[in-house]
Design a protein around this nucleic acid. Structure first.
Lengths: 288, 288
DNA sequence: CGTCAAATGTTAGTTTTCTGTCATTGGGAG
DNA sequence: CTCCCAATGACAGAAAACTAACATTTGACG
């Protein structure tokens, strides 16, 4: 497969896929499952039958056909024809790339995907909504994280700072916490901690200290965290166990993205103006 | 998953194929045609049906079935089942949790999941393997990244340093590149760049400079990157477009994880010992 | 709380694919 | 030339995939 994104002669199948991508949001629940299955398994879909897809997606067979129809494809039959046609034209199998994936990598990938979807599933939990509220309403936000997630914490601080004012990365070690000599801002203060196994001792201390000073605390962590729930209700646990050499960051990353997004969309902020201002600033500094 | 990811689980289908290859010579004329068609078109066979194969091979439909039977496969039906089993894995599990999501999140999530699976699909591409090789074989590795991915680059450097020796984060701005005053290490030097839109001007410059000094370059970037392909063959493009407030980091994060994992598993490293040493060091410093 | 429309599933029918039975072919041994 | 047996195909029946029509459920809205 060539470099992927650039250019495909627009076969009807590609056209169809993009229609599905766009239309996904407007889909009813069950059909959305089917669409998701299609998009995630495009390269192995040719091995499937309508029925088998239905089973794996957990819907009735006919729903598969209906979904296809909705996007202007006359059922499984025509869909397969499109696939075949695309193959005969480009001469390359959609399956080629991932076909050779050893099965343990497949498992690995499935685990990662599951981790991400687990995080998304938490959007409506009280914990997530508490986190959203703290981050949205506080006058100032501190972000911190150590060891293998320090970078993630820094990025999160940077990105969050685009979404709302007064965000600072807090480096306990280096600044000796001079930031907290003064009492929290009047409008409320919030600390966002990212911590994973092996938990940095500082995190818990920092969190408790924050609470004592009257700050809200949000914790993004892995599934084993022992201390966070005692300190705050805004704890987001994400799966991190993997077969890889190190723990996975995907779940954590997804969680931060969602929180940032939620904060950006919080009421009373004009994001467009904010982004414009930011771009103007960035231009002047000439970093691009 | 243990350290070796060389374990291509021997699926029944592979077994079947090798039996066919061996038995080819002893086959009657018509069946030989069929067998040949199978072997030559293994990757498009999923689009075919017993009938269509028969037509293209110029034999009767039943002969196809007979040929399969001869090699211990109970007909087209079982053959397809074997193929399906071999190739389709992902998705069943995701369907359940995601059911309750509001549909706009659903779309968002699917996009993210697809980004990750796209990255995994690239494991076997030449570009990925080149990256793997550079990172595994170089005597020293520098990692860099700016703006919203600087943190990711730093984390990557830290994690990569657990997998192999002599990894440093390179901060062009701050160190004024003093690291590169001296010529590259004798065993080879490698620069890993993470860069996304809006591309930092420094990245391209840095990459070209590295090449001039005889260093290998690996680039992890988004789908729009314009400069990387001119500089090196080890470019990993990951989808980053999302409906969120900012671009997605998931694809990039997945890519770094895979590269780190691959490096850790590169031949000639005793990862267990390395991890033990590291834990001992960490204990003494008392960071946990 | 009821109504209505969209969504989804169920059942049954149609088409396609697959396979079992039997007839035909074709080449080699006597 | 005839007989024999493997090879092959034709046909029909079985099974599966697919679809259409109807029934049930769900959820929004008044």
């Amino acid at each position: 497969m060539s470099h992927g994104f650039a250019s495909y002669a627009e076969a009807p199948i590609d056209d169809f896929v993009s229609r599905v991508e766009e239309g996904m949001a407007a889909l009813p629940k069950q059909e959305a499952k089917v669409a998701q299955y299609f998009l995630l398994n495009l390269n192995s879909i040719s091995f499937e039958t309508g029925k088998s897809i239905a089973q794996k997606a957990g819907v009735a067979e006919i729903t598969v056909g209906r979904m296809l129809r909705r996007f202007g494809c006359a059922g499984m039959k025509e869909f397969k024809a499109m696939m075949r046609h695309r193959y005969s034209v480009t001469g390359e199998s959609l399956a080629d790339d991932s076909a050779e994936l050893p099965s343990d990598w497949q498992e690995q990938m499935t685990a990662e995907l599951r981790a991400v979807s687990t995080v998304y599933a938490k959007i409506n939990t009280p914990a997530f909504q508490a986190a959203e509220r703290y981050l949205g309403e506080a006058e100032e936000v501190y972000v911190t994280g150590f060891q293998t997630v320090r970078g993630l914490a820094e990025d999160t601080a940077r990105r969050l700072a685009l979404a709302r004012p007064r965000v600072r990365f807090l480096s306990g070690h280096d600044s000796m916490l001079s930031e907290w000599l003064d009492p929290p801002a009047a409008g409320g203060s919030c600390l966002l901690i990212i911590d994973v196994i092996p938990y940095a001792a500082e995190c818990e201390t920092l969190a408790r200290m924050a609470r004592e000073q009257g700050r809200d605390v949000v914790v993004i962590t892995d599934e084993y965290c022992h201390w966070a729930h005692e300190v705050t209700d805004a704890v987001i646990n994400t799966p991190s166990k993997t077969g890889l050499f190190l723990e996975s960051l995907l779940g954590l990353t997804a969680a931060t993205s969602l929180l940032i997004h939620a904060t950006a969309n919080a009421t009373g902020r004009d994001m467009d103006a904010r982004m414009r201002d930011w771009k103007r600033l960035a231009q002047r500094i000439g970093i691009f």
